[in-house]
């Protein structure tokens, strides 16, 4: 079955509706944070924790985008097939969008939870680090003219840049951080979701994952067309 225009429209419409519905549910019908986790009377985290539903998705997609860049880079270096380079660069382009969403979400969360948009929390700083790596990756690509050289060099940088992902992931454990922990470690103030919360979380996760894959496919298409177009131009000269 081919992915037709009609199916794309349906997919987008469904995504639009599902995410809006889930967001409405998260905001208006999900309960507040349980009492023992609140730090003081009138803690804004009572409902502010709901930002987690969106920043967590963005973070997961950012990691996935980095992983795709890594895989594309490694496979390119092994096979020298330019297709993989295009996949890696498309993933970096989509990834930088999601990283920006992550940073904005993180800043809002930080303002609600800690009273400042930019708190220099390790999590925030390392997420910014991820953003910079993707920006460096994309700017290196604009600076090299030869297609094969560009693919080779950016693949090397893509593999290097993946170091940022584990670093970001462990950052709130190895540094002193206010960021909520997702795992139940000894000193963590981790919270767990009830059943409806978990369902909403999974719905949002799935829809953002589909959105990411769709955007990756679209960017891949655009890049390929760009290359064809440039080949035609070169042929005419």
């Amino acid at each position: 079955m081919k992915f037709q225009r009609k199916q794309a429209v349906i997919l987008l419409a469904v995504l639009w509706a599902v995410v809006l519905y889930a967001m409405y549910q998260v905001l208006f019908s999900l309960g507040p944070l349980s009492e023992e986790l609140l730090r003081f009377e009138g803690d804004p985290m009572r409902h502010g924790y709901k930002i987690f539903f969106f920043s967590m998705q963005a973070a997961a997609i950012t990691y996935i985008a980095f992983a795709v860049v890594l895989v594309g880079s490694v496979v390119y270096l092994r096979t020298k097939n330019l297709k993989w380079d295009t996949i890696a660069s498309s993933s970096a382009k989509v990834g930088i969008v999601f990283t920006t969403i992550l940073l904005v979400n993180g800043a809002i969360f930080s303002n609600v939870g800690w009273g400042a948009y930019w708190n220099w929390d390790p999590r925030q700083t390392t997420s910014l680090f991820l953003w910079f790596i993707l920006a460096a990756y994309l700017s290196l690509r604009t600076a090299v003219d030869n297609i094969e050289t560009r693919a080779r060099l950016s693949a090397v940088l893509g593999i290097f840049g993946f170091v940022g992902v584990p670093l970001t992931h462990i950052s709130s454990t190895i540094w002193v951080s206010n960021h909520p922990q997702l795992y139940n470690t000894a000193q963590s103030s981790g919270f767990s979701l009830d059943k409806s919360g978990l369902t909403l979380f999974m719905i949002l996760m799935t829809s953002f994952l589909i959105l990411y894959i769709y955007m990756l496919w679209l960017t891949y298409k655009i890049e390929t067309q760009n290359q064809i177009y440039q080949n035609i131009l070169r042929g005419e000269q």
């Binding site: 995410v19 409405y24 679209l218």
Partner: peptide, 26 residues
């Protein structure tokens, strides 16, 4: 909710626009 819905709708419309452009170019 209102702000997010507007942004989200714009993003979806933009993606749809890109999609149709890619298809016609194809």
């Amino acid at each position: 909710m209102a702000v997010a819905a507007i942004l989200w709708t714009l993003l979806i419309i933009y993606i749809g626009y890109l999609d149709s452009k890619v298809r016609s170019l194809d």
